Lab assay of single mutants.
Amino acid sequence: MTEYKLVVVGAGGVGKSALTIQLIQNHFVDEYDPTIEDSYRKQVVIDGETCLLDILDTAGQEEYSAMRDQYMRTGEGFLCVFAINNTKSFEDIHHYREQIKRVKDSEDVPMVLVGNKCDLPSRTVDTKQAQDLARSYGIPFIETSAKTRQGVDDAFYTLVREIRKHKEKMSKDGKKKKKKSKTKCVIM
C-alpha cells in the first residue's frame, strides 16, 4: 500500500485542523484551538488504489514558523489553505509557496490551493482571484467548507493525484537520464 505524506499549511484560523478532522473523523470542530502540530493517518481508496494518507496539520501562528522547514522537508505534497473571508490569509499563500519551493529546492512541488469556509456569506476573496492565482502557479484550486464537508475529500484526493503525477514524471525523467548515460565512448 502506497503511503502519501501530505502537509496542510496556511495562516492561523483558516480551518486547516477543521478540514483535516472532517476528512479523518467526519465531524466539524467549530471551536478554535490553535494547533502546534498534529499528525493523522487514514486509509482510503483513490482511483481504485488503496493508500495510506499521513497528514500533518501544522501551526499557522507566526511564533511556530521555525518548525516549518522541518515538516516541509518531509512532506510530499501540500494543501495551501486560505479562508475566503480573510484576504490576508490569501496573500500569505505566496509566502508559504515560496518557502516550500526553497526548502524542497524545487520549482515543481505537488500543491493544491484550497479556499476554505465557502459556506460563509462574508467572502472577501473572489473565486476568480483564487483561480487566477492557482493557474499562475500551475496547481489545482478547490473551494471547501469544513463545516458542510463540501470539497473536503476532493481537496485531499486531488493532492494525492498531483503527487502521483509528480512521481510518474520524475521516474520518466530518471529513465531518460539513465538511457543517456548508457551511451559509451570508444577510443581507438
Rank of each mutant, 00 (worst) to 15 (best):
G48R: 11
G15I: 02
G75A: 08
D47P: 06
T87G: 11
G75S: 03
H27A: 15
T158W: 09
S181W: 04
F82R: 01
E63F: 01
L23D: 01
K117V: 15
R73K: 06
Q70H: 11
D105E: 07
I139S: 06
V7A: 13
Q131D: 07
Y32F: 01
G115C: 13
L53H: 02
F28M: 02
S17W: 00
A11L: 11
V112K: 02
T2R: 13
G13F: 11
A11C: 13
Q129K: 13
Y64I: 01
V45Q: 15
K165Y: 13
Q129C: 07
T183Y: 10
L52F: 11
Q99F: 05
L79W: 01
K180G: 05
L6P: 05
F28I: 01
D173T: 08
N26H: 14
A66H: 13
I36A: 00
M72G: 05
D38Q: 00
L120A: 11
Y157E: 08
I24H: 11
F28L: 01
D105G: 12
S89R: 05
Y64R: 01
K178S: 07
N116H: 10
Y71S: 14
Y64F: 04
E63P: 02
G115K: 03
Y40F: 00
S106P: 06
K5F: 02
D119L: 10
I84L: 13
E3S: 11
K175T: 15
T50V: 12
Y96W: 14
V112R: 03
H166M: 11
D47A: 10
L79P: 02
T183R: 03
M72Y: 02
Y32L: 01
A155I: 09
C118I: 10
L19Y: 03
K128Q: 07
R97N: 07
K178Q: 10
T2Q: 11
G77H: 01
A134V: 12
Q131V: 09
I46V: 11
C185Y: 05
Q131W: 09
S39A: 07
I93F: 09
Q131N: 09
E162Q: 07
V112G: 02
T127L: 06
E3P: 14
I36P: 00
D105K: 02
L159P: 01
S65L: 05
L19E: 13
E63D: 04
K172L: 04
G115M: 12
Q43E: 13
K180E: 06
D30G: 05
G10P: 14
D105S: 09
L159T: 04
M170R: 08
G48S: 11
V160C: 14
L120W: 12
M72N: 04
D57L: 00
L56N: 10
Y137G: 13
V7E: 03
L120E: 11
D54M: 14
G12L: 04
E62L: 03
F28D: 00
K104V: 11
C51D: 11
K147R: 08
G138I: 04
R135S: 09
V125H: 12
D132F: 09
A134I: 15
M67E: 01
G115N: 06
K128F: 06
L19S: 14
E49M: 15
K182F: 10
I46K: 05
S89F: 08
H95N: 12
V7R: 14
R123S: 12
V152R: 12
T127Y: 05
L52W: 12
M111C: 05
K147E: 08
D57E: 00
Y4E: 08
G75I: 02
L56A: 03
Y32S: 01
E168S: 07
K169W: 04
S106H: 08
A59F: 00
Y137Q: 09
R68G: 05
P34E: 01
K117S: 14
E37Q: 15
T20W: 00
C185T: 15
D54W: 14
A130E: 12
T87I: 09
S145C: 14
K184W: 05
S106C: 12
I21L: 04
I21R: 01
D38G: 01
S122T: 10
V114I: 09
K184H: 03
D38H: 01
L120T: 09
P140T: 03
V160T: 07
D30L: 10
Q25N: 15
R123C: 11
T183C: 03
C80I: 08
I55T: 10
M67T: 03
K172V: 11
D38Y: 01
V8G: 06
D57T: 00
S39D: 02
A134L: 13
G48I: 06
V45K: 10
M170V: 09
L53C: 13
Y157D: 06
Y157F: 08
V44L: 15
I84R: 12
F156H: 10
D154P: 09
Q43A: 11
D33F: 00
R41V: 09
D126Y: 07
H166A: 06
A155F: 12
M111N: 02
G15V: 03
T74E: 11
S39K: 10
Y4D: 10
K117C: 13
D153V: 07
E63G: 02
K117Q: 12
C185H: 03
K42V: 08
L23E: 15
A134Q: 14
V7P: 03
C185I: 05
T20M: 01
I84Q: 13
K104S: 13
A59E: 00
T2E: 14
S17A: 00
K117F: 15
V109G: 03
H27Q: 15
G77M: 14
M67G: 05
G48W: 06
K88Q: 14
E76P: 13
F141G: 08
V9A: 08
K165L: 11
E62R: 03
L120S: 12
I55E: 00
A130D: 14
T50F: 08
A155W: 07
S39I: 02
S122P: 11
A130K: 07
D126A: 06
L79T: 01
T58W: 00
Q61I: 06
K176W: 10
L159F: 02
V186I: 15
G15H: 02
L113E: 02
P34D: 01
L23R: 12
D108Y: 07
V152Y: 10
E62A: 04
I139K: 02
N26I: 03
K176M: 07
Y40A: 00
T74M: 05
R161A: 14
K117G: 14
D33A: 00
L159S: 01
Q129G: 14
Q70V: 14
Q22M: 07
C118T: 11
E49C: 09
T183A: 07
D69K: 05
I100L: 09
K177R: 06
G10A: 09
I142F: 10
A18K: 01
T124P: 10
I93G: 05
C80N: 03
E37W: 11
E98Q: 04
T58K: 01
D69M: 06
F156Q: 03
K167L: 06
P34K: 00
K184V: 04
T2Y: 13
L113I: 12
N86W: 02
T35H: 00
V114D: 02
Y40G: 00
N26S: 14
K5T: 12
L6Y: 04
R73G: 08
D119T: 14
T124W: 09
D119K: 03
Q43K: 09
L133T: 14
G15L: 02
V44P: 04
R68Q: 03
L6T: 14
P34Y: 01
C118M: 13
C185D: 12
H27T: 15
T35C: 00
R73N: 12
L56D: 06
K117A: 14
Q70R: 15
E3R: 12
D108S: 07
F90S: 09
T20S: 05
T58A: 02
D132I: 05
D38N: 01
G115W: 08
V103W: 14
K178M: 04
E37M: 15
D126Q: 06
S39H: 05
R161G: 06
D173I: 03
E107I: 05
H95Y: 04
T144Y: 01
K169Y: 14
K182L: 05
S136K: 04
D33V: 00
N116Q: 11
F156C: 05
P121W: 11
Y4C: 11
I46N: 10
G75E: 03
L6C: 13
I100D: 05
F90R: 15
K169H: 13
E76C: 12
T127Q: 06
L113A: 09
K5V: 05
G10D: 02
E162V: 04
F156L: 04
K16S: 12
A59S: 13
I21G: 02
G174I: 03
R164F: 07
M72C: 03
R102D: 13
E76T: 13
L53S: 14
E37V: 14
K182M: 05
Y64N: 01
I36M: 01
E76N: 07
M111K: 02
K165W: 05
L6D: 03
E162P: 02
V8S: 04
A155R: 02
M111H: 01
V29N: 02
Y157G: 11
